[in-house]
């Protein structure tokens, strides 16, 4: 948001009409550690997807494959690594 809207430009009632626009707000810079996946070990069980608090595990639902992480939003909590049954995800420090 480069310029904040004036009162005349706002939707009445304090309503937000752009559903899901929080996606444009990046929380990735909260991270001190980033998850990395070793796809050779991954069995595409989708546990990481299911338990990610931030919906930041990228999957191809049609192919049924785990595709990595949305680093724009991943906060680096490490839940994905903790739940991975094959230890395919490791947390590495952000540089």
């Amino acid at each position: 948001m480069s310029r904040l809207k004036t009162w005349k430009e706002l939707t009445p009632g304090g309503i937000i009409c752009e559903a899901g626009n929080a996606r444009t707000y990046k929380t990735g810079d909260w991270r001190t550690e980033r998850p990395q996946v070793d796809k050779a070990k991954c069995i595409n069980c989708f546990f990481c997807w299911a338990y990610c608090p931030d919906g930041s595990v990228r999957v191809d639902a049609d192919k049924g494959t785990m595709e990595g992480f949305d680093y724009d939003h991943c906060k680096g909590c490490g839940i994905c690594a903790s739940v991975c049954p094959k230890q395919a995800i490791t947390m590495v420090p952000e540089r």
Binding site: G20, A22, R23, T24, Y25, K26, T27, W30, R31, C45, F46, F47, W49, A50, Y51, C52, P53, D54, G55, S56, V59, A61, D62, G64, D70, D72, H73, K75, G76, C77, G78, I79
Partner: peptide, 25 residues
């Protein structure tokens, strides 16, 4: 889970709950 992943994501990323919060799960 794979079928669930085909449904629309109803709570998007970019929310500001703490890292590792149980609520959004």
């Amino acid at each position: 889970l794979k079928e669930l992943a085909k449904r629309p994501e109803r709570l998007t990323p970019g929310h500001r709950l703490c890292a590792g919060c149980g609520a959004p799960i």
